[in-house]
Write a protein that binds this DNA or RNA. Structure first.
Lengths: 178, 178
DNA sequence: CTCCGTTGGCTAACAGTGATAGCTACGGTA
DNA sequence: TACCGTAGCTATCACTGTTAGCCAACGGAG
């Protein structure tokens, strides 16, 4: 059955990915581990991007299960998130790619490390991490270009600030959407 | 000056990226737009990944400026975030890649669209978006494998839930880091 | 049994990729 | 003038995703 071969290919792709990084995931390498040759893969999968899309879906599903173990409220959110994220498959690289080594970065930028974020939250590491996560998401919120223009983004930003502001008095500020 | 040629190459790369997507960003294409040939680029840049790293840094700096316009508190957060994010250059693909077309996804998954997230927040679109952003960040928090093991992640998750829980009574719950 | 279409493999090949080797020409300095 | 580093070039390498075209095996229809 074709479906069987597809899931097998996705599994092999994931093995290669986790073992040797994204550059190791080639159609020839996948096929070799399946005991066939690369062109035969195209009898089961239209192209490499489709294979990667399957990988995304599997990874996000697993993530949902992992989050479910962490608590039911979080699982609800994760399920909702997954539904949205499935429409943003370029998450794939975010979730799987090995970061570029630090010494490849332009000189100097890496010196501004974790300190400013911790300082902004006065040493509260947990909130600093949550804020990092949220801000990280905001990047794609802005750049993914999947949302309405600036007016709505402003509201999302305001909600974000209200939820995460390190200054307690900002907490009482009325939320824009409510 | 070599530095000049590098920034020029990064600019050209960005043009190609925004015009025709990530696959259009090849060393040959970049060189062609600069009026030179691909091998000459390697006199200024060690490899393509280094060039991409410059692109990340530039994009994140611009994002910081954009966020600064949205308000000073947010700018503080953005600056702190940027410092952390600069250590995660695989953000590059997240920020720039064109999503894989929906019809390449495995059949069925795309049907679970925005509705569950909106439902979880009882129609409050702004908070739903902020939660999406935060959850999006959480994905990389978990998978980037840059943080200490489960114990600390649990704390970050708890902080995240406390901040974004759609149920008001959860708000009073003591934050784990404080 | 015999034909026939489908499935799933194969080899050969193509255009394009990042990257290296080795050459040449210019500009500044001793 | 002699020299040396910078920055371009051509030619080339190994490898990538992908297609074309061929072929063996299987299952069902006449």
């Amino acid at each position: 059955m074709a479906e069987d071969r597809v899931t097998q290919a996705v599994g092999v792709a994931r093995e290669l990915l986790e073992a040797d990084g994204p550059d190791a995931v080639s159609m020839r390498a996948i096929a070799a581990r399946m005991g066939i040759r690369a062109p035969s893969l195209y009898k089961h999968v239209p192209d490499k991007a489709a294979l990667e899309a399957h990988l995304i879906a599997a990874a996000l599903t697993e993530l949902g299960h992992a989050l479910r173990d962490a608590g039911p409220e979080l699982a609800d959110l994760a399920a909702a998130y997954r539904s949205w994220a499935i429409g943003h498959p370029h998450l794939y690289t975010l979730a799987t790619a090995q970061p570029i080594p630090r010494d490849r970065l332009p000189a100097g930028v890496e010196d501004q490390a974790a300190a400013p974020l911790l300082a902004a939250f006065e040493g509260d590491e947990d909130r600093a991490r949550a804020a990092w996560a949220a801000a990280h998401g905001l990047v794609s919120l802005e750049l993914a270009d999947r949302f309405p223009p600036d007016a709505d983004l402003d509201a999302a930003w305001a909600a974000f600030v209200a939820a995460f502001s390190p200054r307690p008095e900002r907490r009482a500020q009325p939320r824009p959407g409510a």
